[in-house]
Structures are given as C-alpha cells and as structure tokens.
Computed example of a mutant assay.
Amino acid sequence: MIKYFNRKTRKYEIEKVAGGTYLKWIYSSPLGMKILEIIIKKKIFSKLYGLFCDTRYSKKRIEPFIKDFNIDMSECPINYNDFRCFNDFFSRSLKQDARPINTNKKILISPVDGRLAAYEHINLNKIIQIKGFTYSLSELIKNNKISMNFTNGNCLIFRLCPTDYHRFHFIDWGKCEPYNKIKGNYYSVNPISLQNIPKLFCKNKREWSIFHSNNFGNVIYVEIGATCVGSIIQTYNPEKNISKGSEKGYFKFGGSTVILFFEKNKITVDRDILEQTKKGYETKVLLGERIGTQYVQ
C-alpha cells in the first residue's frame, strides 16, 4: 500500500498501483527476484514491450487503462480513439490551459505531474533514495567535478506513476546544456522496488543535463527510466533560450522518475512538502504549481 499526501485536501490518499500484486511478488519473493535479475531488469525486456506499445495492436489497452485508473481525458486535446497506439496515448500532450504555469519569477514550480519527496542541505555521498538506502550524486551522474558544486544544496525527487501525464518541463527561463546518456538496467521505480534495490537510481538507465536557470542558479535535471520504459525522449533545443513551463521531453510507457539538484541557497522548498518528506510521505504535485520559492537570506 502506497500512501501519499494530497496538498489540496490536506489528507492522505492511497495510490492505485498498476500491476501492484505483480510488483510486490517480483521485488519481495526469492523466485521473483531471480526472474527480475535474469529477465525483467534487462534492456531487451523493456525494449520488446516498448515496441509492442508502439504497434496498433496495443491500442486496445487504452480504454481499459483509462477506466481502471480514472484518467481525466477532458484535459487531452484529442479523443482517445484517435491515438495510433498505447505509447501515443501514454506520452500524450495536454490542452494548453490544463496545467497553468505560475510565471512569478520568484516562484519555483513543479516540472511534472507526480509524487514529490524533497531534501535540504544534502550530503552528496548520502542522498536518500528511501529510508535505509542512500546513494551519491557522483555515482548518479558519473561526474565528480560537477557534483561538488551542489554540496549542501537541495534534491527534489519526482516519481511519475504510469497513470500520470508523462512529459517533463522546465522550471524557469534560461538555457539548458546538451544531455548526457548513461546506460543501465530497467528496475521499477515504485516504492516497493526502492525498498529492495540499493542505489536503484544509479543502476537504471538515465539521462542528465545542466539547466542554467535565470532565477534558481544551475540545476541538474536527471531523467530515470524504469521497467517497460521504451525510451526517454528529449525534445528541447540545447543552448537555446527556454521559457518557464516549456517542454523538456517525455517518457514512453512505464513509471519513471525526474530528479532535480539545486546549489546551496538557491531555493526554499514549501514547508508542507518538507514536513511530509520527513514523515516518510510523498506529496502529490502537478506541473506548473508552486512547490517553493527563490531563496532569501
């Protein structure tokens, strides 16, 4: 059971997990773990499933998925029947007014729809994955020189469920450097797997880039793939002027994660998010909503 905090209702809610029973068995049983290591974590497994989701035969999965997870299709600019395949539906765009962007330059916005855990004054060698498991930033991006610039900064972990809108966006105006690819496995990023696989984020396929934000300093964007994620697609233009809220890229099918690292004294995360993280709960957020502010001494 995954419980998260809903900021709007100020209540805790239970997440409906796609394939929850399967995930629990895979990541909690001896036989499941053997199958995970031999087959499921491998690139070929996710690639083949991704290829299937790109075919017209996968289209029949769209309507049941919408009904099972109560997805609001009024936010989408086209009818679900008009999608060519499941991946087209999964990586769908939204209507322009579906996610209002807070354009106040001092306000930090969420780059995605997802569940957020936030950490202040991070120890670069002990970044929290989940209670009991940590990893280092240099392991994650494989660049110790850049990592050192983020000592005592902030780390924001956004977990995207398969039911979420799966495009990720920029939090501010600025310019973004070209992205770096790191090959890896395809473990699930669900809390069930995070509790069982040490340094999971450092083991999975991922891409990272440095965003030179006008108002929040330099920010490391890390996009992490997961089981059945066919691809991480970057759609931004490197070194070009970027607007707050503009699209950076999207994931194909599967749950995924976006992690942002901020330098010391650049942002202040909203108190309710920090309090819920300390209690062990993620906070549900939507693209464009306020999650913090520019740091003020």
Rank of each mutant, 00 (worst) to 15 (best):
I101N: 07
K105A: 02
D97G: 03
S110Q: 07
A98T: 09
N104L: 14
P100K: 08
R92V: 11
N104V: 07
G114N: 07
C85R: 13
K105R: 10
A98V: 11
L94T: 14
R92P: 11
T103W: 01
F89I: 07
D113E: 12
F90A: 13
N104T: 06
Q96K: 13
R99V: 04
I107P: 00
F83I: 03
N102L: 10
I101C: 10
S93G: 13
F86P: 10
C85E: 14
F86V: 14
R99M: 06
L116P: 01
D82M: 09
S93K: 11
S110C: 03
R99H: 08
G114W: 01
S110E: 02
T103V: 09
S93T: 11
I109W: 00
N87E: 10
G114K: 01
P100G: 09
P111V: 01
A98D: 09
Q96E: 12
F89Y: 15
N87I: 12
F90S: 05
L94Y: 14
Y80M: 12
N81F: 15
I101D: 05
R99S: 08
Y80C: 13
A98L: 08
K106Y: 07
R92F: 08
R92T: 13
I101Y: 10
N102H: 10
T103N: 14
Q96S: 12
S110G: 05
A98E: 07
D82T: 04
R115A: 02
R115S: 03
I101V: 15
P100V: 08
A98Y: 03
D113Y: 01
G114A: 08
Q96P: 00
R99E: 04
V112N: 12
K106G: 12
R115L: 00
D97K: 13
T103E: 11
R92W: 13
K95Y: 00
D113I: 02
N104P: 02
L116V: 10
F83T: 05
N87V: 06
A98C: 11
C85D: 15
N104D: 15
R99W: 10
S91I: 09
S93Q: 05
D113T: 06
L116M: 08
L108H: 01
D88M: 10
S91P: 01
T103D: 14
S91E: 00
D97Y: 03
A98N: 09
I101P: 07
D82N: 13
I109Q: 04
N87Y: 08
F89R: 14
I101S: 12
R115Q: 00
S110K: 06
P100D: 13
L108M: 02
T103F: 07
D113R: 01
Y80N: 14
F89P: 08
N81R: 15
F89V: 09
L94R: 14
S110Y: 03
N102F: 03
N87H: 09
N104Y: 04
Q96N: 13
F83C: 06
K106H: 13
G114P: 02
F90W: 06
C85K: 11
V112T: 15
F83A: 10
S91Q: 04
R92S: 14
R115C: 00
S93F: 05
Q96H: 07
Q96C: 01
S91L: 06
R84Q: 09
D113G: 08
L94D: 09
I101L: 10
F83H: 05
